[in-house]
Design a binder for these strands. Structure first.
Length: 422
RNA sequence: GUGGCUGUAGCUCAGUUGGUUAGAGUGUCAGAUUGUGGAUCUGAAUGUCGCGGGUUCAAAUCCCGUCAGCCACCCCA
C-alpha cells in the first residue's frame, strides 16, 4: 500500500529545510533582539479557547477548525492561530508576575480546514510575537517595527504595510461606527453583493474589504462614514501616537481605513503586510492590538499587541523578490577510504572531527575510490580526505581541496587541528 | 463549501484520427584495465499512464465518478 500526504499538507525536503532553518533562526534572533522570549504551547487546545477567543461568528471558528472529540469525549481543536494558546499560557502560568511588558514569541504549525491554494495550506507555520501588559502606543509601533526589521534583515523589498485602527468596544467607539455604517449601507443595500447583504447583519466591518466592484463603489461615495472619524477620542489619540512613533522609527507604512481583520479580538491598532506578487493569498504578516482578550479568556484585564508571519508565504514572497536564501548543507570533509583497515581508522577519525564541529561524511561501506570521489563531489564537500594502505603505513592522509584540486599530505594526528584552523 | 484548468518514470515532458512489448531528456546506480571528482562515452534499474467504473474487437488517448494538485471565490499566514 502506498500512502500519500493528507490534503493541504506538505513535506519540507532537504534543500528547502535549510531555508526554513535560516528563516526561523533569523526570526528568533530578531525577536530576541527586541526582548522576546520563546514560548512553546501545545498544538491542540480545548475547543472553547478558540471559539471564545477568535469569535463564534468568525469564519475560522464556523468552518475552518480541525475539531474532534478525544477518547474521553472532550472537544479538542488543532490551533488555527497562535495568540489564543499564548494568552492561555500567559494566564495559566501567572506570567503577569513578570515585569511588564511580558514579551513572548512562538514558532510552530497552525491548522485550518480550508481549500488549499497557492500559499494556503491546511498546515502552515507561523512565527509570531505577543507583548502583554502595556497599552502604550509606542509598543504598538515597536511591535510593527519588529516585523519590519525581520523583513528588512531578510532583504525583503516591495512589501506593503497597511495600518488602521478599529477602535475599542466602548459604546462611543466601534459600536457607534458600526451603527453609522449600517445606517448608511442599509440605504444602498441593493448595490451590495449577496454575501455583503448577509455581512450587513453579521459583521458589517467585513464589507469594507469586499472585492466586488459594486460594493467597492459604495465605499467611494462621499457620505460614507469613515472609521477613523468615529472612534473614541482615546482610541484616536492612541492611533495618532502610534503613527508618531512609526515616523520616529522611519517605518514605511500607509494608513488604510478599510483594513479589518478576521479575528474578533482586535482592538485599536491593526496592521497587515502584503506582497502583491503572491496572487490571491497575499498576506504575509498580520497583527494588531487585543486589549480585551486576556480578560475574555479568564485573566486580569491586560492590554496586549502582537503579530504573526506565515513561513510558507514569506518564503514565496522572498522568492518572487529574487532573494537567494543561504542553502548550504554541504559537508566540510568527505572521508574516502580504501580497504577495511582504512575504513576502521576513518570511522574513528570521523568521530573526532565531528566532535570538533567539522561536518564530516564518509561511505560506511566498501566502494571504489572513483565512486567515493563522485560522492564527495555530488555532496559538494569542500575537501576530500583520502586514506588507503599507503597512508595508514605513513600515518598520513591525502587532503584534497575539491575546488582547486590541490592535494597535500597531513599527518593523521594533525587532521583535527588542520581543519579547526579554517 | 462553490467554480475553472490539470494528473504519463524521482524530476521536466513527448505520445500523432483510440491500434500490438509506453518513449526522450535529466537524475539515480554501475562501468570505461587494477588508488582520485566535476567532461565525455557505455550499460542497468525504475511506470497498476492518479484511482474506480463505462463505451469499444481494442483506451494513456473517448465518457462518468472519485481523489489530488494548480487557479479564482470565501477567508487568511
Amino acid at each position: 500500500m502506498k500512502y500519500n500526504l493528507v490534503r493541504g499538507t506538505k513535506d519540507v525536503l532537504p534543500g528547502e529545510s535549510v531555508k526554513w532553518q535560516y528563516l526561523t533562526r533569523k526570526a528568533s534572533a530578531v525577536y530576541s533582539a527586541f526582548g522576546y522570549s520563546e514560548i512553546k504551547t501545545p498544538v491542540f487546545e480545548v475547543t472553547e479557547l478558540f471559539t471564545r477567543g477568535i469569535g463564534e461568528t468568525s469564519d475560522i471558528v464556523t468552518k475552518e477548525m480541525y475539531t474532534f472529540p478525544d477518547k474521553k469525549g472532550r472537544s479538542i481543536t488543532l490551533r488555527p492561530e497562535g495568540t489564543a494558546g499564548t494568552v492561555r499560557a500567559y494566564i495559566e502560568n501567572n506570567l503577569n508576575a513578570l515585569p511588564a511588558p511580558v514579551k513572548l514569541f512562538y514558532i510552530g504549525p497552525m491548522f485550518r480546514y480550508e481549500r488549499p491554494q497557492a500559499g494556503r495550506y491546511r498546515e502552515h507555520w507561523q512565527m509570531g510575537v505577543e507583548a502583554f501588559g502595556s497599552d502604550s502606543p509606542a509598543l504598538d509601533a515597536e511591535v510593527i517595527s519588529t516585523a519590519l526589521t525581520l523583513l528588512k534583515e531578510l532583504g525583503a523589498t516591495g512589501l506593503k504595510t497597511n495600518l488602521n485602527s478599529i477602535g475599542c468596544m466602548s459604546p462611543d467607539c466601534r459600536p457607534r461606527y458600526i451603527a453609522a455604517l449600517k445606517d448608511f449601507l442599509k440605504s444602498r443595500s441593493e448595490k451590495l453583493c449577496d454575501t455583503c447583504k448577509v455581512r450587513l447583519e453579521k459583521n458589517p466591518l467585513r464589507i469594507l474589504d469586499c472585492k466586488v466592484e459594486s460594493c467597492k463603489s459604495v465605499f467611494s461615495e462621499p457620505g460614507i462614514p469613515k472609521i477613523l472619524d468615529h472612534i473614541c477620542p482615546s482610541c484616536a489619540a492612541h492611533f495618532e501616537k502610534v503613527i508618531d512613533y512609526l515616523k520616529l522609527a522611519k517605518a514605511d507604512y500607509s494608513v488604510n481605513d478599510k483594513l479589518v481583520r478576521g479575528f474578533d479580538y482586535y482592538t485599536k491598532t491593526v496592521f497587515e503586510i502584503t506582497c502583491d506578487k503572491l496572487g490571491a493569498q497575499n498576506g504575509v504578516l498580520g497583527g494588531g492590538r487585543y486589549n480585551g482578550l486576556v480578560e475574555e479568556l479568564g485573566g486580569q484585564p491586560t492590554p496586549a499587541v502582537g503579530f504573526s508571519v506565515g513561513v510558507e508565504r514569506l518564503l514565496l514572497a522572498l522568492e518572487t523578490m529574487g532573494i537567494k536564501l543561504p542553502a548550504d548543507d554541504s559537508p566540510d570533509i568527505y572521508l574516502v577510504t580504501l580497504g577495511e583497515a582504512a575504513l576502521e581508522k576513518a570511522f574513528v577519525l570521523a568521530g573526532e572531527l565531528r566532535s570538533a564541529g567539522i561536518k564530516t561524511v564518509m561511505a560506511c561501506e566498501d566502494k571504489s575510490m572513483k565512486t567515493q570521489m563522485r560522492l564527495a563531489d555530488a555532496l559538494k564537500a569542500k575537501t576530500a580526505v583520502i586514506i588507503g594502505d599507503n597512508e595508514l603505513k605513513d600515518g598520513v592522509a591525502v587532503v584534497k581541496d575539491m575546488a582547486t584540486g590541490n592535494q597535500q599530505k597531513v599527518a593523521l594526528n594533525e587532521l583535527k587541528r588542520h581543519f579547526s584552523k579554517t
